[in-house]
């Protein structure tokens, strides 16, 4: 896929009237960043890009107070990586988006860059220029230039991703690859499980004590779309609003349970976190349980019911007192 192909495709969709608006990525204001763009004319399509900096999950723009986007008469097109398409599928199965009204445009993803990893590669020095192709990344700063393989700096969520290309689409720019095997997807979770209980609690406390309760993780998440989030309820007020550790932990645990069987592990939350908290570990633990216990992988098919809204009568209940 070339950027030219991408732009031409979007242009023709707009000029032929197949869509009224396309949500995509444009160049960001800092090296190594992109920013969501809303393209409603063919001219604007020239600002579209797709590369390893396109880390936002654009499906979020169909949720929360933009829910109307996919409900009114507008026909919306959206560019999706593999994970983003799964978010769309989830939202469609949950009747939040009308499949007929959205044009899903798949783009081939090789993983998105985690800028914190890139900055780590250059010992925290400021990066002034960033270029990448599907295999490697080159960064320049004051008095340095460095090239390294893309795989070394992609987000943790991309490292274990086996569905890099859209699972559901109307058109795909380039060639969509078949999903791989997710046999070893949860090695990190299994490592953590091996620690003893106290050690796990101490590590969690350490990690989550950095949380500033800005809710960026929740707000960039296409699966988090309650009208009023439980942390925003004040009658009754379920949890305290200060960054006190138990309140913070409860927020994150409950958020994880609310997206249990609904999280596509896109990693948008982790990349959005201003405090660099490894949020995805909890999500992945839940996803592993959901996969192993209920055989469900979120957002992989329009006919699948979300795991937590479903049940079988004779299910494993080893956690119930005998």
């Amino acid at each position: 896929m070339t950027v030219k192909e991408l732009r031409e495709t979007v242009k023709s969709l707009l000029t032929e009237g197949k869509v009224d608006l396309v949500i995509g990525w444009g160049k960001g204001t800092m090296p190594g960043t992109s920013t969501p763009v809303f393209i409603d004319t063919a001219e604007k399509a020239d600002s579209l890009i797709f590369d390893s900096t396109c880390r936002n999950n654009l499906s979020v723009y169909f949720t929360k107070d933009r829910r109307a986007l996919a409900k009114d008469d507008k026909k919306i097109g959206v560019l999706v990586k593999g994970c983003d398409s799964r978010s769309l599928v989830l939202n469609i199965t949950e009747k939040q988006i009308d499949r007929e009204k959205v044009t899903i445009i798949g783009v081939p993803c090789n993983g998105v860059v985690d800028m914190k990893k890139v900055v780590g590669k250059v010992d925290g020095k400021e990066i002034l220029e960033f270029t990448d192709d599907s295999k490697k990344v080159t960064v320049k700063g004051r008095e340095f230039e460095l090239t390294f393989p893309l795989d070394e700096v992609i987000s943790d969520s991309c490292l274990t991703c086996v569905r890099r290309d859209a699972v559901e689409y109307d058109l795909f720019i380039g060639e969509a690859r078949e999903p791989g095997s997710d046999e070893n997807a949860y090695a990190e979770v299994e490592e953590f499980e091996k620690l003893d209980s106290e050690e796990r609690w101490e590590r969690m406390k350490q990690e989550y004590s950095a949380c500033i309760r800005c809710y960026a993780c929740r707000n960039v998440c296409p699966s988090c779309y309650c009208n009023v989030c439980f942390v925003d309820q004040n009658d009754p007020q379920w949890i305290g609003k200060s960054p006190e550790i138990t309140d913070t932990m409860i927020f994150h645990i409950i958020r994880n349970l609310h997206v249990a069987g609904r999280c596509v592990e896109c990693g948008a939350c982790e990349r959005a976190c201003p405090m660099d908290i490894k949020l995805l570990l909890l999500n992945r633990k839940v996803a592993k349980e959901v996969r192993d216990r209920f055989g469900s992988i979120t957002g992989t098919g329009l006919e699948n019911k979300p795991a937590m809204a479903d049940f079988k009568e004779d299910e494993n209940q080893d956690f119930i007192m005998g």
């Binding site: 500033i212 800005c214 201003p274």
Partner: peptide, 13 residues
């Protein structure tokens, strides 16, 4: 405002 997701990251830092 189209792309803003309304988190508090900007305000809190």
């Amino acid at each position: 405002g189209a792309k803003c997701v309304n988190c508090g990251a900007c305000a809190f830092i």
